[in-house]
């Protein structure tokens, strides 16, 4: 994909979106030192979203990657499976807003009084992504996903500082949702779809599900020597059995 999508191309339909690479060039150029095996079902790049449509997912992949980019510290959001994580979270009670107090009336107020929109996480993503892309088309003549990283960052900064608003969704509200979910995806147990290969935990130096530091309460500032372990196998956290176990 060389030329950015034009506004006309965008209006022309979703077909043109499929040709935009999911991974940025920088991420693609990174050599994979691991032995190549048969296609890996757990490979985040193979994931097909069930909540987000193609346009939305493409935005998500690129926006998360700018928030948590691949760099000398280790993989970024895409390689960690963060977009997959967020897509899967959209089908949980959390995604539907069931964890929040959602009774009307809804009224805006000072930021200190917290979130006041009538929208669940699903609604927020659905409501903000298309207007963000429209904004990018108007200002930069291209979808967010194909903007150069510096321009993507500028759009994100305008969201973070609340200079942008997408219909009734303040930019900062959506940005915080995206940042929160991105970091959750980078650092939650891999069973949830992100933190692929526990690479997020390795980067941080977090030993995962060890949860026993009897011998490491105080080693006078020495680094903890063991890498992470994942949670022992348990029901798929997206299975009905697991969700039923949750308190409603």
């Amino acid at each position: 994909m060389s030329a950015p999508l034009s506004r006309r191309g965008f209006m022309g339909g979703a077909a043109s979106l499929s040709s935009i690479p999911l991974l940025s060039h920088a991420a693609q150029a990174e050599p994979d030192s691991r032995p190549q095996k048969t296609p890996d079902a757990s490979d985040p790049a193979q994931y097909r979203p069930t909540f987000f449509n193609q346009e939305e997912y493409l935005f998500l992949c690129h926006a998360c990657e700018r928030i948590f980019p691949q760099d000398e510290n280790g993989p970024g959001a895409q390689a960690l499976g963060v977009p997959r994580f967020i897509d899967r979270q959209m089908n949980t009670p959390y995604g539907f807003g069931d964890l929040w107090y959602m009774k009307p009336p809804f009224q805006e107020g000072p930021p200190e009084l917290g979130y006041q929109l009538p929208y669940s996480p699903r609604d927020l993503y659905r409501g903000a992504i298309t207007p963000i892309n429209t904004h990018c088309l108007m200002v930069h003549d291209a979808l967010f996903a194909v903007l150069p990283p510096e321009q993507q960052d500028a759009v994100l900064r305008d969201m973070e500082s609340n200079r942008l608003r997408f219909n009734d969704i303040p930019g900062a509200t959506f940005f915080e949702q995206l940042r929160t979910n991105t970091l959750e995806g980078a650092f939650s147990d891999p069973a949830y779809g992100g933190n692929h290969g526990m690479e997020g935990w390795k980067m941080m130096g977090f030993p995962g599900a060890r949860a026993d530091f009897m011998d490491w309460i105080n080693q006078d500032g020495a680094p903890y020597p063991f890498g992470p372990i994942g949670m022992p196998p348990r029901p798929d956290p997206y299975s009905p059995a697991f969700q039923n176990d949750e308190e409603s």
Binding site: L99, W100, Y101, Q107, Y115
Partner: peptide
């Protein structure tokens, strides 16, 4: 002020 709901913990 108008008090607003604590919608998210």
């Amino acid at each position: 002020q108008t008090a607003l709901p604590y919608r998210q913990l």
